[in-house]
Amino acid sequence: MTAAVDKAAPVAANRERARSLAMLAAIWGVLALAPFWMPYLGGYTALGTRVLVLGLGAMAVNFLLGFTGVLSFGHAAWFGLGAYGCGLFLKFIAHSTPLSIVAGTLLGGVMGAILGALIVRRRGVYFAMVTIAFGQVFYYIAFQWSSLTGGDDGLRGFQRAPLDLGFTTVDILYNSTAFYYFVLICFAAAAAVMGFILRSPFGRTMLAIRENERRARFLGIPIELHIWIVFTLSCFFMAFAGSLYALVNNFADPLGLHYSQSGNFVIMAVLGGMRKFWGPLLGAAVFVVLQDYVSSLTVNWQFFIGLLFVVVVLFFPRGLLGFFQQRVQS
């Protein structure tokens, strides 16, 4: 009995590893080749770019929600701050795409770190409510301060700058394929950092907090400090995604800060599967494609997203990715 178990365990572990390697290869293959296969399915490259950027945002929300068990309902604030930071930098300070991304990421990330420190003692619904409030404060600031932000009309008058690689420049403004690969590289870098953290001792303290806060505390983990660090990291990832979003649209708009946008990120994460690293990306893909396709047929596309969301929550509690993985395993 014991011997059988001892032998069975490594075999199962190897199969598990092989399966996750196969999935990684499939994901990166699909993403890397997207500009080539998407047109055949009626898609276009800019749609893929949107999936990457919103997917990264949903993964950032999920870094906090799925792996630490903390629900923020105001994460669009950091996404939107990233977008405005990036756009304002391009418009008023310097015509450099990399620097504008750094500016947007810092603006959203640092604000998130500061405000996060004020709320890490709140839990559950209270935490979610305070984060909504933060989000709305930034929404109204962006809405009202029209001399700087363009107010209701959004921030216009900036464009992503060509990438200067020293030996050559890459046009990412008009060449949508080049821009897609630029965003894919940014996405890969952020995803790699996230994955690296999650596999580390610190990442395991996140799981500990999600699984059982009391046990974690009495193992000697200072919960508030760890949640604050995760929240801050999540805000930086979010602002990074927001900066990219400003570049996607050459535009930033107050609705990007609104709590309904925060809700969309949470929906993407839950739809795809919030216990899975790649779940939110799948959720974002479904969300974006459905939005793009259904909104060309009817203005009530949100109804269909809502319907799908309810079906997933009721019948596939592990999300679409969790459901597919189960099917593959059995």
Binding site: F196, S200, P201, F202, G203, T205, G220, I221
Partner: peptide
């Protein structure tokens, strides 16, 4: 955690 690695990445 006991080994002092809780903040290590």
């Amino acid at each position: 955690v006991a080994s002092g690695y809780r903040l290590k990445t």
